[in-house]
Each structure stands twice: as structure tokens, then as C-alpha cells.
Write a protein that binds this DNA or RNA. Structure first.
Lengths: 205, 205
DNA sequence: GAGAAAATCCGTAGTAGTGGGTATATTATA
DNA sequence: TATAATATACCCACTACTACGGATTTTCTC
């Protein structure tokens, strides 16, 4: 099984490689610190399995997954993330990846995931399963932010005022206020600080 | 050399262990996900080198370092952090640790650090050196926040209003406003969002 | 083409925080 | 003990955002 690793922390990359090298059936044929470099490699080489972090500089793991699915549909993908925020997990799973494990899972979980994915199954780590099931049991939570709301939240996080955002998007300040109101409602926060924390947890910053 | 590892991400712990096991002179005699568990171990066993992450649940890496220095002064310490924020780096180095490397350094850097520390030297990763030198060249930056300011920043980050904070600390709202002003000045931010980002970067949240 | 969802826009009143000061008591530190 | 640093407190004018409310247009979906 030809595996390609992506993570922006070299030490983690080295560690995982060291673990996988102990398995005779697995072969790490390449690694990268950024999604861009990974894509270049996948365009030119056949990769059976891509194991990628979600947090990457520039292009994030989600964008990488979408592009890999386009340019190399046979490549299976396992996401190795530290994020356990329900919105974000759902967003990633929607892309149809083959496995999702967390960084505080052990290497055994990673090996199990690889085996399962190799056998054509989908593997979710225990914690991720819990999150999914929990969100099915308590579906009260609002649906995700719309694209526009997300756009505005990002601008808020970039320290723009309502006035600035309105100018930038060529809309009225009122509209920005309305979006802001809706974002607050949907994220169940009622302070700017809470909102920024939400943005962090959901990787919008 | 008897080494103890601390990191809240099991997969990283496993990876580093796997790397270190290849070196015949090194022996990983234990590992932990939390500072508390690590301290228990160090109390009862002789540890030559502690390699610890900074971000830990509950007690953080800085507090761990301070306690280890007390209960086992012979134990050398290498901090393995993803933080490269100048204030925080300085704060950690002030504790007198033996090495500081970043998570996006490679395993070679880690091995070099271990060798240097074993030889009684202090090892700083290249990026950390740059940060230190840079801060010497441009010492214009304000000194760190005072304890009180830090306390107030944490409360701001917990979504308390000035009124709330004043009540909680039994001081006037005016005083809170003054502290807030000083915090803004010192952190060179001028929006709440910037402030929260600073708090994140400095691990105050 | 009906209906839902999303995006747009507005008013009015009130509040919390910003930015500019100044000033004094307390606590470290040399 | 002088000096600096920190923590405390106040004033005033201003602005940005909040919290209610309601409404219309555009876009998507069945």
C-alpha cells in the first residue's frame, strides 16, 4: 500500500513514518508540509492512501481532499485532525473521506484505520463516532452557517468593523448587522469573544 | 539516558517513541498525556530527561517545568512546542530549561537537542534562536503584561464584561477600563478580536 | 410556478466599549 | 529612602455594536 503523508509538523510526520515503516505491507512513498506540494506529487504518482492533517498553512485539509478526489479518485483518504468540533467534523465527513481519526488517538487506531480503509471500509475513531451519534440524538443544533455568513464571520475575525465589511462587500451596514445577528443566533454565542472562539474551533481563522 | 515523554496527542507520543527507540543509548521509560501523571512518575522514578509539550490540558507545560525543577532538579528538560510567539518563548526560556524545539522541526533536530542536552549544553532550535536574536535587535516591544493585566485578559476572554470583571475582582469599572487600555497598548492591538487572537497565541485561553 | 431559504435593507433606542486625558495609593527594587 | 512600576480610580466625548422590531428581493428546489 503506497501511502503519502501530509502534516505541517515535521516531527509528527517523522513519527508517523517511523511507525508505519514497521509494517511490512505499508510503504510511505512521500510526505509534504503543505497541501500544494502534496497535490503536485499526487498528480504525478499513484498514491493508494493519503493521510492528511486538517490544519495546514495556506490551503487547508478540506480543500486538499476536494482536489485529490478530482485528480485522483482512486486515492483513499484518512483525515488525521485535532478538531472534534461537531460542525467541522460533519463538514469534513460530507466530502466522503475514508477515515477520520484524532491526534489523541494512539498509533494502533491509525493502523486499524489503515487496515479498514484497505478493506474498503470507512473507519471513524471512537470519539468521532460519539460526536456523530450525539448530534443525531440532539439535532436541536442549528444548521451550519451559510456561505455569506461564513464570509462575514471571517471578515469580523480579520478585525474589520461592520462599516468596513459593508464597504468591502458592497452591501449596506444594516445587512451586515443582520448577518451578524443571525451568526450570533446560530452559533449560540452572545459576545464577540465567544464568536471568535467559535471561529477558532471551526478553523475559520 | 532515561527519557520521559509528555504530550496530549497520543499519536505524537507514539511517533516520538518510535523514533527514539532506534537510538540504542536512549530509553523511553515512560510517557503521559497530562502534567499530573508525569509528576507522579517523576516523584517515584529517576528521569534523566523530560521531553514535554507546552499545550497540555489542565496544568500547562510551564507549570510542569517549575514543579519538576523542584522535585527533581537533576532532570533535564526539553520543551517541544508549537508556539513561536516571542513573549511566550521568553517566558518559557526564563524557567531555565535545557532545550526548546518546535513541532515543525524534524526528528533530527530532536536528536541533536537530546545529544546537546546530554553533553550539558543548552539547545535551541534554529527558529527559536532567530526569535530571540530578533527580539534583541528590536527591543522596542513592550514588556510582558503584568499579572493583573493577564488576569483581566483571561476574564475578557471568558466573555465577561467590564462590569462583571469589576464585580469579580472587587475593583471599580474604571480600573478595569484602565487595565484594558494598557493591555491594548502593550499588545499593540486595537480591537477585541486582535486581543483574543493575542490571547490564543500566548496560550491564555 | 409555489414555497422555502438566503440575502438584502431599514428604524429606533440603548449600552458597552474606545480614546483621550489625569491622578493617587501601593508595592518592588535599587 | 528615593525611584520606578503597578494597581487603583475618575472624567468626558464619541463610536460601534446590540436588541428589539419588521420588510423586500433574489435564488434555489420541488
Amino acid at each position: 500500500m503506497k501511502i503519502f503523508l501530509v502534516d505541517d509538523h515535521a516531527i509528527l510526520l517523522d513519527g508517523i513514518k517511523s511507525i508505519l515503516e514497521k509494517e511490512p505491507t505499508l510503504k510511505v512513498i512521500g510526505e509534504a508540509n503543505t497541501a500544494e506540494v502534496a497535490l503536485e506529487f499526487i498528480k504525478q504518482n499513484e498514491v493508494d492512501l493519503l493521510i492528511t492533517d486538517f490544519n495546514l498553512p495556506e490551503m487547508d485539509g478540506l480543500a486538499l481532499v476536494r482536489l485529490v478526489k478530482k485528480i485522483s479518485p482512486i486515492t483513499k483518504i484518512i483525515m488525521l485532525s485535532m478538531h472534534d468540533e461537531v460542525h467541522l467534523v460533519k463538514e469534513i465527513l460530507k466530502e466522503g473521506i475514508n477515515g477520520y481519526i484524532l491526534k489523541n488517538d494512539s498509533h494502533k487506531e491509525l493502523l486499524s484505520a489503515i487496515a479498514a480503509v484497505d478493506a474498503g471500509k470507512i473507519y471513524l475513531s471512537n470519539d468521532i463516532n460519539k460526536i456523530i451519534i450525539n448530534s443525531l440524538q440532539f439535532p436541536d443544533e442549528e444548521r451550519m452557517l451559510t456561505d455569506r455568513e461564513r464570509e462575514i464571520l471571517k471578515l469580523i475575525a480579520k478585525e474589520f468593523s461592520n462599516r468596513d465589511i459593508a464597504d468591502q462587500l458592497f452591501i449596506s451596514e444594516r445587512t451586515v448587522e443582520t448577518h451578524r445577528k443571525n451568526i450570533f443566533r446560530k452559533t449560540k454565542t452572545n459576545s464577540l469573544v465567544g464568536l471568535i472562539k467559535f471561529a477558532y474551533a471551526n478553523n475559520l481563522i
